[in-house]
């Protein structure tokens, strides 16, 4: 129980605020953040906040989820490319799975991602929602 809450807590900067790192030499942005640029070995980096909109590159529909996500079935997991070129994976919510299409514009919204049973810690983060406004 306590291990989950501590692990969850360590990921707040990326889960809550979409904080990524940009390496000085390559100019590449990594999300989740990394300490070392895997291509150049560079460690000089700055924190950047990712944009909150992008387009779906690919997705899969989960129809038989694990117990933690049972109430959400069926739901889609998608990889989207944000407007700055960064790619990330998240659940797609507020959308009928049959309406999801590759190329669909999405927005990142703050949502409850999972909960540790009825009495454990609640975990928050980002999910994709259709970009309709």
């Amino acid at each position: 129980m306590t291990m989950f809450s501590a692990r969850n807590w360590r990921e707040y900067p990326q889960r809550y605020r979409l904080e990524a790192v940009k390496f000085k030499k390559s100019g590449k942005t990594y999300f989740p953040p990394r300490q070392v640029d895997p291509e150049t070995g560079d460690t000089e980096r700055e924190m950047v906040v990712l944009p909150d909109t992008g387009k779906i590159l690919t997705y899969t529909v989960i129809r038989t989820p694990g117990p933690m996500f049972k109430d959400l079935a069926p739901y889609a997991l998608a990889i989207a490319e944000l407007t700055d070129g960064t790619r990330l994976m998240a659940q797609v919510t507020d959308c009928d799975v049959d309406a999801i299409k590759i190329g669909m514009e999405v927005r990142l919204e703050f949502r409850r991602v999972q909960s540790e049973g009825a009495s454990g810690v609640l975990s928050y983060g980002y999910k994709f929602v259709p970009k309709w406004y």
Binding site: D71, L72, Q91, T93, D94, E109, F110, R111, R112, V113, L122, Y124, K127
Partner: peptide, 8 residues
């Protein structure tokens, strides 16, 4: 929906 609450 289930993934939305007062905090979100």
């Amino acid at each position: 929906p289930p993934d939305m609450d007062t905090i979100t």
